[in-house]
Design a protein around this nucleic acid. Structure first.
Lengths: 341, 341
DNA sequence: AACGTTGAGTACAACGATATAGAACCAACG
DNA sequence: CGTTGGTTCTATATCGTTGTACTCAACGTT
């Protein structure tokens, strides 16, 4: 069925090591020998057994990407870029869905094995302990640095970005600006940073921070965004703009505003965060902070590659990815388009 | 650093094989011996080396999922279910993005190696040759059967589902029903089936098929859906409903209708296909055909599992997954909600 | 007392690749 | 002519695990 080096060697009349040398591009092989071996390889359709190669070399050519879930658009888009960037380096990507609370176990159990050369981890919740199971596997963290663990990080400046988005709302003349996405759990590091940016922008503009305008969302998805918006609308605080901690919350909020018969941005302006594809076609299209996802993925793979070959003991690095504020219809209606929401 | 069976064995004062037996849950090990070994395993934080295990057992515990791209919502959602279903069987999932035309190469080159126990492949374009490179690796195809190759299939009845969606539009009293998503390329098998369903429904209702109402979309995504809709609107054919071959096309169409100032469903009713998450929160929410994605994923993993352990020569099976028509606002506005689109 | 049976454990050979050491050959040099 | 150095190739050990074959003791049966 499947052929081994030995079969190729016999067919070409050389030793296994010579075949191995040819396959790995070793220099000192006579042209005619090389040709004979290559012919045999082609004849038998030989493919190296990666398990064996990995066992010998201690490399697997596989990295893992751990994300909360592929059904979350941001992570799906990010995963796409990671897979692409990894492929360019000859790596395959194993996807692990940490999905909420069970991350702890999954990272330790499923992934800590020797199957992977490294791990790119996008943690919602993560403590230093969780990383212990990895025991030397190179690691790159995406998003908030949890603590100064032994890992490289790729981050964007969430605080500054959220401040920029909120300042944009303020620049439109809005004053009662709500926020959606607060999380009280210890895991909500990203939420805290973005809301700190929101608060900072208000402060800069001399607008008082009003706690009743800040709605929590235990998980960030459309349904919670809609629920939070409904809550804000019925609680009598009458916001004229909303900053949402991510685009799915914002899309949910758009939905709730629509159901309440309010116009966006006429009555309420909406800004999100992440620039997922949906927001470019939603009605209205969604103003958002667009992190450079391709860059994030590429930086992560690059950092990981550095750790994988050698260089394991240099101190952890932080890489910063750029972002842009992308105004769309949900805050700035185009002049010649009907603005019914 | 990393410990091996041998280290554990020395610490526990037994042979390597005994440790192996404990790790693998072999029955005949005395409780005290087992305890000693387990203690040693814990002390050293031992993890089996999967490469070595795989080499020995001929299994890797990894399957690959090849999809066009994770940025396509349907495939992202599907991938999530596949990863989950595979995890229940102890499999990890390697994601391969075939992304358009290069599939041929990728399948043959990247994946054909021994690293995976099996492959779940969701082909856009695929011929019998493309599968040749796999050379014995168990394979499950999602979606249209391309030909009666040596592979199991998981399908839904695209023709019947599309007919049902179109019949739904007809039942609303619409008569000038357009379709978006036609593809002339040989790869467009799914498009052809869905449009055949569309045509069948028209035929049943005694409505003449009008070619000018059928718009092509070389790739299925929001931008092309919007473009196709704009084309239909400007070409003077005045549709009162649109059946879209997938939800992203439909979301694009909603967008174009909105920009043209038309009301959905008042002026034009819209139906999609796939039931992606966005469609549940879009404005208006999207009527669609909802294939049971979890079921599809589960069936695929199950079929693959059967092939992987033994049973390689039984003839290919087809598994059919259920689907449901899910009417939402884009065809049937709720009584008490404003219907501005 | 001799027997097979079962439990508990060990030693060793695989799995298929690469690394190491060294053999055989050739050319060039003093 | 022996030595040195480079090229080309081979034999063999090795990576860490599991399957096979085996030993040895304890047990119940006849």
């Amino acid at each position: 069925m499947r052929h081994r080096l030995k079969d190729v060697a016999e067919r070409a009349g050389v030793s296994v090591k010579t075949v191995s040398n040819v396959v790995n591009g070793y220099q000192h092989v006579r042209p005619d020998t090389r040709a004979r071996v290559e012919q045999a390889v082609a004849d038998l359709n030989y493919r190296p057994n990666l398990s064996a190669r990995n066992l010998r070399k201690g490399r697997t050519g596989v990295i893992a990407l751990a994300v909360p879930g592929l059904d979350i658009p941001y992570f799906a888009e990010l995963a796409r870029h990671v897979v692409t960037a990894a492929a360019e380096r000859g790596w395959a990507v194993l996807i692990d869905q940490t999905g909420g609370g069970s991350e702890r176990e999954r990272v330790a159990a499923g992934i800590g094995d020797h199957l992977i050369d490294g791990l790119i981890f996008s943690p919602l919740a993560l403590t230093a302990e969780d990383l212990a199971g990895l025991d030397g596997t190179p690691l790159v963290l995406l998003g908030e640095r949890v603590d100064h663990g032994p890992a490289d990080h790729v981050v964007i400046d969430n605080l500054a970005a959220a401040r920029k988005a909120t300042a944009h709302l303020i620049s439109l003349g809005r004053r009662r600006i709500a926020a959606i996405g607060a999380q009280r759990t210890p895991e909500g590091a990203t939420a805290r940073l973005r809301l700190a940016g929101y608060a900072a922008a208000l402060d800069e503009a001399g607008i008082a921070y009003d706690e009743r305008l800040v709605a929590p969302a235990p998980a960030w998805h459309r349904a919670n965004g809609a629920a939070a918006m409904r809550h804000l609308l019925t609680s009598g605080v009458r916001p004229d703009a909303v900053f949402c901690c991510d685009d799915t919350l914002a899309l949910g909020a758009l939905r709730a505003l629509h159901e309440a018969g309010l116009r966006v941005p006429g009555d309420v302006a909406v800004a999100g965060f992440d620039d997922i594809e949906d927001g470019r076609f939603s009605i209205p299209t969604l103003t958002t902070i667009a992190p450079d996802k391709e860059r994030i993925a590429r930086l992560a793979v690059e950092l990981l590659a550095n750790r994988v070959d050698g260089d394991r003991r240099t101190p952890p690095r932080d890489a910063h990815a750029p972002y842009r504020l992308t105004p769309r219809e949900s805050t700035t209606p185009p002049a010649d388009t009907p603005t019914v929401s």
